[in-house]
Computed example of a mutant assay.
Amino acid sequence: MDDRGKTLASARTIVVKVGSAVLTTRQGLHLSVLYNLVEQLARLAASGRRVCLVSSGAVAAGRTALAGRGCTAEGMSGKQALAAIGQGRLMREYEHAFAAQGMVCAQVLLTRDDLRSRTRFLNARNTFMQLLDWGVVPIVNENDTVAVQELKFGDNDQLASLLLNLVEADLYINLTSADGVLAVNPEKAAPGEPLPFLERIDDIAHLDIEALCGAKTSVGTGGMQSKLMAARRAAQLGVPTLILPGRRADILDRAFAGEKAGTWVRPCEHTVSRRKYWMAYQSDPQGTVFVDEGAARALEEKGGSLLPGGIRDVEGSFEPGAMVLVACGDTQIGVGLSNYSSEEIRRIKGLKRVEVAEILGDAHYPEVIHRDNLLLHAAV
């Protein structure tokens, strides 16, 4: 049995994400797809697995509900209003579908701020664990009705990647409108068969994500590039990803029975801690710190911390404790928590420790970013 078969057989906590392009049509929710999905999730649960579902579809369902009423939904407020209309419709169908299987589901709406605070992250984790212990299926979506731009996950692919850490999942399944990851960009050439698996997805130089991805769907916010970014994050955590054609009947059953559908994304050989994973992806970078080649080698090859002497420049405006990108020229090295503000870094860049002390005094950090607060090759 290969690694895919072994993982599918042994996985006990699974995060399944389904996108709008799978769940909706121009007429509204694709109920036959939704009910078939729930039947499959029920069978996974009956086999002793814990299942968490990340579901898109609220905005699309809301848009369909307003069809013919002359309402124009524009901008953030329009999308949030559509989500308010559609979320209840989406959950009503899920409740009916799970009830038909003798199961209970729970609605969980999140913003990024819920996972940014360590205390709220742990509270959310306790809630999810209790639901899963009860055999209840959490149905998770971004709280589009209230989320402002800086608190948004971006799309449900990224939300699902953060949920993997929250529920300590050992498998991530992404149900999409495509057959899997195609060998070439479908916008530029005939796509052909999907790739059966991807390795080294954390190695940007090895995998040209742009060449594999087409445009996002008309009803979603992500597209294949977003799915591969989420798979890169999952791989860093040691969690494999299976990208499957979500509209194909009983696709989950067939995958767990051994059918080689979709694309299997293998986890990284060297994984990161759950704490560092949470730290790196809990907020968007607020600026960029540019380092010289010597500092880049020290970070990537020796696992060192970033010292002031290796910094060439800084972009953006941020305070101490902010998440920042670290780059060498055009190459992104990683993300980390800065001990200094952008203004302080501008004052001490390129200096030795004794020179930093002369400017900032003795009460300063030796590192701009400590290695314990740095994640290399982050998927941002």
Rank of each mutant, 00 (worst) to 15 (best):
D2T: 04
D3M: 09
K6V: 13
L8W: 02
S10D: 10
A11E: 01
R12F: 01
I14N: 04
V15H: 04
Q27E: 12
G28I: 02
H30K: 06
L37H: 09
A45G: 12
V51G: 03
C52K: 05
C52W: 07
L53A: 10
S55T: 11
V59H: 04
L66H: 03
L66E: 08
G68F: 04
R69E: 15
C71L: 10
A73E: 15
G75M: 10
M76P: 06
G78S: 12
Q80N: 08
I85G: 13
G86C: 02
Q87N: 12
R89W: 00
A97Q: 05
A99I: 01
A100H: 15
Q101V: 05
L110Q: 06
R112K: 13
R112A: 05
S117L: 13
S117E: 05
L122D: 09
L131M: 14
W134Q: 09
V137Q: 00
V137D: 03
V137Y: 01
I139D: 04
I139H: 07
E142K: 13
V148M: 15
V148A: 10
F153H: 02
G154C: 02
N156V: 07
L159S: 02
S161P: 06
L162S: 07
L163G: 05
N165T: 08
L166Q: 02
N174G: 12
T176G: 07
A178M: 13
A178Q: 06
A178K: 01
G180V: 05
N185R: 11
E187Y: 14
A189I: 05
P191F: 07
P191E: 03
G192M: 05
F197C: 09
E199C: 03
A205W: 09
L207F: 05
C213E: 08
T217M: 09
S218T: 12
V219D: 04
G220I: 00
G222K: 07
G238K: 01
T241N: 04
P245D: 00
G246K: 00
R247L: 00
R248N: 08
R254D: 14
E259W: 07
E259C: 08
K260D: 14
K260T: 13
A261Q: 15
V265S: 00
C268H: 07
V272G: 01
R274P: 14
Y277H: 11
M279C: 14
S283V: 02
S283G: 07
Q286D: 15
G287Q: 09
G287T: 03
T288M: 11
V289C: 00
V291I: 10
A296W: 01
R297V: 03
E301F: 14
S305Q: 01
L307K: 00
P308K: 01
P308Q: 03
G321K: 08
A327E: 11
C328F: 08
G329H: 04
D330I: 12
D330Q: 05
I333C: 02
V335C: 07
G336A: 04
L337A: 13
Y340V: 01
S341I: 02
E344K: 06
E344F: 06
I345E: 03
L351S: 03
E355R: 06
V356N: 01
G361M: 02
H364E: 06
P366E: 12
P366D: 08
L376I: 05
